[in-house]
Design a protein around this nucleic acid. Sequence first.
DNA 1: AACCTCTATGTAATCGATTGCACTGCAACG
DNA 2: CGTTGCAGTGCAATCGATTACATAGAGGTT
Lengths: 341, 341
Amino acid sequence: METKAPRITDVARLAGVSTATVSRALSKPETVAESTRNAVLMAAEKTGYRVNLSARNLRRQRTGAIVVLVPNLGNPFFSEILAGIETALSEVDINMLVVDTRQAHSKPQLVLEYLHATRADGIIALDGSLPDEILAVASSGTGAPPIIFACEWTPKGMFSSVRANNTCGASLAICHLAGLGHRQIGILTGPDDNVLSHTRSAGAKREMAERGLELDPAHAFSGDFSLESGARAAQAWLELAHRPSALFCQSDQMAFGFISELARNGVFVPDDVSVVGFDDIDIARRFIPALTTVRQPRKELGLHAAKMLINHVGTSTSPAIETTILEVELIVRGSTRAAGD
Amino acid sequence: METKAPRITDVARLAGVSTATVSRALSKPETVAESTRNAVLMAAEKTGYRVNLSARNLRRQRTGAIVVLVPNLGNPFFSEILAGIETALSEVDINMLVVDTRQAHSKPQLVLEYLHATRADGIIALDGSLPDEILAVASSGTGAPPIIFACEWTPKGMFSSVRANNTCGASLAICHLAGLGHRQIGILTGPDDNVLSHTRSAGAKREMAERGLELDPAHAFSGDFSLESGARAAQAWLELAHRPSALFCQSDQMAFGFISELARNGVFVPDDVSVVGFDDIDIARRFIPALTTVRQPRKELGLHAAKMLINHVGTSTSPAIETTILEVELIVRGSTRAAGD
DNA sequence: AACCTCTATGTAATCGATTGCACTGCAACG
DNA sequence: CGTTGCAGTGCAATCGATTACATAGAGGTT
């Protein structure tokens, strides 16, 4: 029953031409005569021919796939980025391999597997905190496929990247709060070793400094971008003798955790505290209160990264390092209000 | 500078053996003498050899990858399932290709590309509403790789699947509300053509019937699992002359949209209405109010589907159709309370 | 008519690893 | 001592498509 999949020779025989012609008719149609081309297409149709990608890739010395390194697949923040990447890739017939890097630090070997040209034609890393040994291989240029960082990046600046304007986003958040009259503004940061944390903190502090505000060390909370770390910050916040009137959370998820935990303890946003988030994930506009936040163009980040990578893959010479920064936007909603009643 | 990637012959030469031996030493270590094996391993190490997957796959007649068809990558509900799949696959060295099927209905050709053995060794479909022409190809058994539905499934029952006990979940939701004294219970369903919608509706209705409750057609709202469709349902709900005191939402996202839009109009959950969701996505426990919902074991769904698929891939004979149903759990939180004050 | 150009096609090498089959040599057995 | 068995290894075919190079033939030029 199970008949063998048709090969290119089957099509060639049926069309009465050589395999070379079939191959050309399918991948470089303009190089064969129209009549021949039609015959080939009909034969391909009739046999139900599909090119064997392993064979093609072997011959063409490529894999037809790029891998995306995701820090945590369970985090909804990344899904839109993936969607953007997928959109760009599907146009050029490249597959998207998704790999979760949660284990990268404990088992770098596992991720290293992907850093070889035999695995993927390119890499998009959404994770800026890859272990050094992985980065070393990636930048060595020996057999490692081109790599582009999206969203996060490495401080060393050895790789191309696409990012949102995090500094500006942090400024916008502080501007907004300061504009509402808040003078005691707290910050809830991401992981200490994360480049986004640093950039956003620096942006926020600079903006505060320019306005003559100061960040009280007691008002700097440290989280890890997750819901629960936001809730933990809320507990710390509740214990403060002297509470700030506003908080800049470096991710929406932390903002939700924070607001939620406060509410559980009878403290409400925005009446008692104003909160600004970062990312503008889908639920932000439907949270209660709707979250004022800095929107990152997530889909565009993915699209752009994929397009850059596609260009890199095309050129054999290792291309210059380029950095693209996409603009962010402050979305004012219900979680912030004027200070002091 | 750019030296060629080492091939198996390079390793063979360095180790002083044939390529056959190298190949065996690496993939079936027990078949070569220990001394030879060590020599090969050292040579492989020294040359930095990586097997060329295209070549291996061509020869072995497989692709080393499975594709996951996701209805909507932007929806956070799917991310944990993907994480589960990835976990299972990484153990057996199979890659995960992720494809968004949002365009499947307009361009089935695009998805059909993946339904050939040359693309993937197997398929996990998270989308139960694939176009018929795709299902036809998938079930034809001719050259199409094995396919397993996870979470959603096709009513025709021609494919293996892993699902949550949706009927039971709906029952639990209704039980809970009825137990709190609610007699007028509304339902917000998913898309009309979706198997989850039907199953959950049927389960809910059966449970209501057993308790002598009836579903007023005016209290049946129809959505599409998204936040915004929940908000639209809220608007419809607000216009009702006679409002039910509780609502069973077939997804958490819809519940959030519903609750949020009500709040915007001065109607509050759970004081004015009780709401039960379905899925228990991460944010559910941090929403305000925290959402009472039916938990689906999302990660396990993914894990299980991947394991089933791995088994199917192993056996050449097309295996029997099997259905695994994972149990759900009602998580009672703050969005429900006793009826009538 | 001789020569050149250019298009369309075919021939066959090639990509790199796997594996069926054949072979070698050593150990065990009668 | 002659067989037999078996573990270990090598030889070479094979997976299926691509493409450099060769070639045939049409059409144009002098």
